[in-house]
Amino acid sequence: MKMELIQPFINAADAVLAQGLKSPMSMGHLTMEEEAYRRKGVAALVWLTGDIEGRIIFDLDPKTATKVASGFAGMELPESEELVREAVCELANQVIGNAVVSLNDQGFHFRIHPPALHNAEQGTKSSEDTEALVICFETATGAMFMNIALRYNQKLEKEQALGVRAAN
């Protein structure tokens, strides 16, 4: 997976979390995940289709999700399962939406599908061409994990390669 695909998501997460939490955060460890994805807290999954395809999972512990939700609401909100689920999905939506704006500026076009809760304890194993990168963001209230498995659309890549050959 190329860094040019990842960096917009890191930048967007940084910007959206900073506005939501209104406190400093830092990027922790960054790992490639070869085994199947294991959920750590409350997770939302978003699929992308188009020039770039794959999925992104946002995974937060409930306390951090409540803090982010309170930051977006501009008031302290009580922790509840529903609030946490909604906050994680909306956070995923906002981070991915902002990242897509940046990727679109680079000429990539794709569709974001609405976020869905990722309830399974364990996800599918990543493959060679859709290896997952896990980024940990450390905040004052806890960690947020962003698990990214994206690749260039192979059909488009083939078409472009054929187009180049035909042109030559």
């Binding site: 959206v16 506005q19 939506n93 981070v95 902002n98 897509v100 679109n104 974001i112």
Partner: peptide, 25 residues
């Protein structure tokens, strides 16, 4: 009101009748 505020979307929304666009958050 959307996080997906790239130019194509904004132009499409305005062409199809929206009056303005606000980026999330």
């Amino acid at each position: 009101v959307s996080s997906v505020g790239y130019q194509e979307n904004i132009v499409a929304a305005l062409q199809r009748g929206a009056r303005h666009f606000v980026q999330k958050p």
